[in-house]
Every structure is written in C-alpha cells, then in structure tokens.
Computed example of a mutant assay.
Amino acid sequence: MSKKDRKKQHGATPAVLALEKAGVDFTVRTFEHDPEVEDYGDEAAAALDVPARQICKTLLVELDGGPHDGRMGVTVVPVTMMLDLKAAASAFGAKKATMADPKAAERSTGYVVGGISPLGQKKRLATVLDAEAASEETLLVSGGRRGFDVQLTPAELVTVLDATVAPIGREDLYR
C-alpha cells in the first residue's frame, strides 16, 4: 500500500510517519476498539486473530540512578507477560525503575494510554524490547491509537528505535 493510500485509509499517526521515514516494511492492522474493554492486548489479539504473545504493550518507567537518572524509559513487552521492574532497571543501567504516571507518559509521548506507541513519540527515549518478544517472527505494537496497530519484525523495531533487547518480562500470574 502506498504512503498516500495508507494516509487516506488510516490517517497518518506519528508512529506510521516514523516507520515510513525509516523505510521500514510494516503492515497496518486495525480493529474496532470497544471503549468498555480495558485489556487492550487481549482485545487486539482476538480482533486481529494473532497469538497474544505477538501483541506488545508499551510501558513507560521512571528511572532512578544510572545514565538515565530522572528520565523515563520505554519498555515493550508481550501482553502475555508482566514487566519486571528490577530487570527493566538493570537493562537501562539504573538502580531502580517504577511505573511512570499515566499522565506523564501521555505528555512525554503525545499518545493516550492504551494507544501509546514506542514509535514516533514526541521525545525520543531509551527503549528496551523484551527478549522473548524479540524471538517472535513478527510483532504488533500500537500504531498510536486504540484499535490501530502496526506489524513488523522485531529486528526492524529494534533498528528504528535503536532499542536494547533484554529479558524484562516475566510470567503474568494473573492470566
């Protein structure tokens, strides 16, 4: 699909523009988001008929100590896992990582919670992709709004984001 056709069909989000600028091969995947649903990952997996382990959530963390002290970092983990904050802190070279305030995450990224993309954020932040996610053939991450995902290879995601790959996810005991 050409750039012009994609803009007409889906609207150009900053995430899509960032991928196009980088010359990355990706596919836009959309579905009708139900405002009553709070588990965006499971909703996306069911609607797009893909294994939930290939759907990733973008979570921002506040970092304490290390090279990113006082800043936020971006983590990308499968929706089937929980973010391990100790492992995330280690991956960023920080002493401690805590979940970022949702409003602060929205201000920093320019996206709303549930639609935060690791791509095309207002402020470029250090990013870590979970090692299990990196082993998948393709991943889906938010394209910048709820019900709007982009599908690409983990290698392309790492390249575009200049991300680090590390084991930052752990089993989600509530699934």
Rank of each mutant, 00 (worst) to 15 (best):
L139S: 07
Q121K: 06
V158I: 15
A134K: 09
A166R: 05
V160I: 09
A126M: 07
A100G: 03
T98L: 00
D162F: 02
G114S: 03
E137N: 14
T109Y: 00
D130L: 08
D162L: 04
I116N: 02
T138R: 13
E136D: 13
L157H: 08
A166F: 09
L129G: 08
V165H: 13
Y111A: 00
K123R: 15
G143A: 02
G144A: 03
V112L: 13
A163W: 09
F148N: 12
V160K: 08
E106A: 11
L139G: 08
A163Q: 07
Q151K: 14
G143I: 03
E132R: 14
P118M: 12
G120F: 07
D101E: 06
D101I: 01
S135V: 12
Y111C: 01
K103G: 06
V113R: 11
A105C: 04
A155C: 06
S142L: 05
A134P: 11
T127W: 06
V160E: 06
A100R: 04
A163S: 10
R146F: 00
A105N: 01
L161R: 14
L140D: 05
G114D: 06
K96N: 08
L157T: 12
V112E: 11
L139K: 09
S135I: 09
D162N: 15
L125D: 11
E106F: 02
V128R: 08
L129Y: 10
V128Y: 07
T159V: 02
S117K: 02
G147D: 06
A97E: 04
G144E: 02
T138S: 14
L119A: 08
G114V: 05
R145W: 01
A131H: 07
T164S: 13
A133L: 12
A155F: 07
V150H: 09
D130A: 06
K123E: 15
S142M: 01
R146I: 02
R107I: 00
S108E: 12
V150Y: 10
K96E: 09
E156D: 15
A100C: 09
E156F: 05
F148G: 00
G144Y: 05
S142A: 06
G120H: 07
T98G: 00
V141M: 06
R146W: 04
P118F: 12
P102F: 01
L139A: 11
S142Q: 03
P154V: 13
G114C: 04
D149F: 14
G143V: 04
A134Y: 12
P154D: 12
Q151Y: 05
S142I: 05
E137P: 13
P118A: 13
K123Q: 14
Q151E: 15
A166I: 10
G115W: 02
V150E: 09
R124C: 00
L119W: 03
T127Y: 10
